[in-house]
Structure formats: structure tokens, C-alpha cells
């Protein structure tokens, strides 16, 4: 059984049919990259996996998204789902509080912590996000004083702190400089051991570098996004089955 099994997924924003008939599985402990042109529905797809689309007024989701054998759109416990499936956003969005409180924000929602447990979780999470050494002396300082790359790693630490099994990333490096990008990519490879990662990226090289599997989304003539093909990254990049995948990837590379 795959970790995620997505069947006949259709998403509508009001009258706009944004995502059409997506069928796809996502395996545990892999990095899956979602690529494709703007507006192809890859972010929409990502946001279906932890029901973040619910926040958008007028959204309608059809089909089924099975997570660990349960249909997340039938089971109403979205709080538990988002506890298990964390999300890192395109723009680093630390809360206007201390680094320490940022890391613990999610954990404190779900657990009552002693002081020792809290400090242990903060240290572990920041270490996992390779931020510990840079911030260990200023944990009580505001998170807004960190650099962009540090803020994004803090957001990753905050997501990891609640101990999810899946981490969804929506273009997490697109607003960062190459050095910060590199460190976050290294981090993802490291995290693969314990987590399942699904990442939306516009950066083909990044997708090729870090992902095990790649899903290519495209837009049809009625502006509906759909899945063209999904497979091992090396196959999708070097011997794609579909002409459109080949054109897109070559266009991006040459």
C-alpha cells in the first residue's frame, strides 16, 4: 500500500476547473517533485494532500485522496491530518515571536510539554533543520531577525517539531539565494530517511538533483491542469514517455 493513493482527483475554484482527473501514488520515504508550467495545478495538487485548499473560498474537491488507507476528504479530522502532514511554504513565514516559540507553536497545540521536553524538542528540531548552531545562543530573540534562508529553515524546523510523517513543500527555495537553496536541498536529502517529502518546484535542476520521483503537470486548452506522467526522476528526465514532458524539460534545460 502506498502512503498516498490519489484517485480521480478533480479540483474546482468556483467555476474554474483547476485540476482534472489526477491518479497518482506517493510512496513512503521518497522525495517526489511536482513540476510543470505556472497554472498547471501542481500547487493545487500539493495543497489537496493536507487539505490546505479548504482555506480558499469556493473550492470544491472531487475524487479520493487516501492517506495511510483513509480517505482524508471523508474523514473530517483535518487537525490530526495536518499534524501528520506538515507544510513548508514558498515564502518563509515565521510567526512574530521568538525562535523558541516558533518551533514549539505546533507542538504546543497537540501536546502539553514540560520545560525539559520543550527544550529537547527545540534543540532536536533545529538540529534536523541544520539551524541549531546558528541560533542556539539567541533562541529567545525574535524570529524576524533571521535571514531569509534561516527563516525558511526555521519554518522547516517548526514543521518537523510536530513530528509529521509527510512534509509538503511549496517552492521552498524559490525566494532564496543559491547558498541557502543548497543547504535546504541537502537538508531534504537528509530528511528523506525519516520523512516522505513532496515538493513543488519551478527549478528543473533542483528537481533532478534531489527527487526520487517526478510528476509532470501540464495545462490543457481549457486551462485545466492535469498530470501528464509520473515516474522515477531519471526516467522522466532522460527518457520521458510523453512528448510534452520531453519538450518542457528540454526547453528548460537548453
Amino acid at each position: 500500500m502506498s502512503l498516498f493513493e490519489i484517485k480521480n482527483l478533480n479540483v474546482y475554484y468556483g467555476a474554474h476547473h483547476a485540476l482534472k482527473d489526477v491518479n497518482m501514488n506517493i510512496e513512503a520515504n521518497t522525495i517526489t517533485a511536482l513540476i510543470g508550467p505556472s497554472g498547471c495545478g501542481k500547487s493545487t495538487f500539493l495543497r489537496c494532500l493536507d487539505r490546505m485548499n479548504d482555506l480558499i473560498p469556493g473550492v470544491k474537491v472531487e475524487g479520493s485522496v487516501m492517506f495511510e488507507g483513509k480517505d482524508i476528504y471523508k474523514d473530517e479530522d483535518t487537525l490530526e491530518l495536518r499534524h501528520r502532514v506538515g507544510m513548508v511554504f514558498q515564502k518563509a513565514n515565521p510567526f512574530p515571536m521568538s525562535i523558541y516559540d516558533n518551533v514549539l507553536y505546533g507542538v504546543r497545540l497537540h501536546y502539553k510539554l514540560t520545560k525539559d521536553e520543550a527544550s529537547r524538542i527545540v534543540e532536536e528540531s533545529l538540529k534536523k533543520a541544520s539551524l541549531w548552531n546558528e541560533v542556539k545562543d539567541r533562541l529567545k530573540k525574535s524570529a524576524l531577525g533571521l535571514s531569509g534562508g534561516q527563516q525558511q529553515r526555521l519554518c522547516i524546523a517548526r514543521t518537523l517539531a510536530v513530528n509529521p510523517s509527510v512534509v509538503l513543500m511549496d517552492e521552498p527555495t524559490s525566494a532564496l539565494d543559491p547558498i541557502s537553496t543548497r543547504s535546504i536541498e541537502d537538508l531534504m536529502r537528509e530528511l528523506k530517511k525519516d520523512y516522505t517529502i513532496v515538493i513543488v518546484t519551478h527549478n528543473m535542476a533542483e528537481a533532478a538533483r534531489i527527487s526520487d520521483r517526478t510528476a509532470f503537470f501540464y495545462i490543457d486548452e481549457r486551462k485545466r491542469g492535469f498530470l501528464v506522467e509520473e515516474g522515477a526522476t531519471s526516467e522522466v528526465f532522460f527518457s520521458p514517455k510523453d512528448k510534452r514532458t520531453e519538450d518542457y524539460i528540454q526547453g528548460r534545460f537548453s
Binding site: M52, L55, R82, G86, F89, F95, G106, T159, V162
Partner: peptide, 27 residues
């Protein structure tokens, strides 16, 4: 208040009222 803060809070499994009190009103 930056919408992405609200998303971050909801994304961590917070309810709307937790998000309102702990993030939105604070910001």
C-alpha cells in the same frame, strides 16, 4: 496580517480560534 502566517498556523494543525488568538491578534 500576512495571510501566510494564517496558513502556517492552520498547516500545523491549529484550529481557527487558536490561529486567531495566537497568531492573528498577536500580529
Amino acid at each position: 496580517v500576512d495571510k501566510s502566517l494564517i496558513e502556517a498556523s492552520i498547516g500545523l494543525g491549529a484550529t481557527w480560534s487558536e490561529t486567531t488568538f495566537k497568531v492573528v491578534l498577536k500580529a
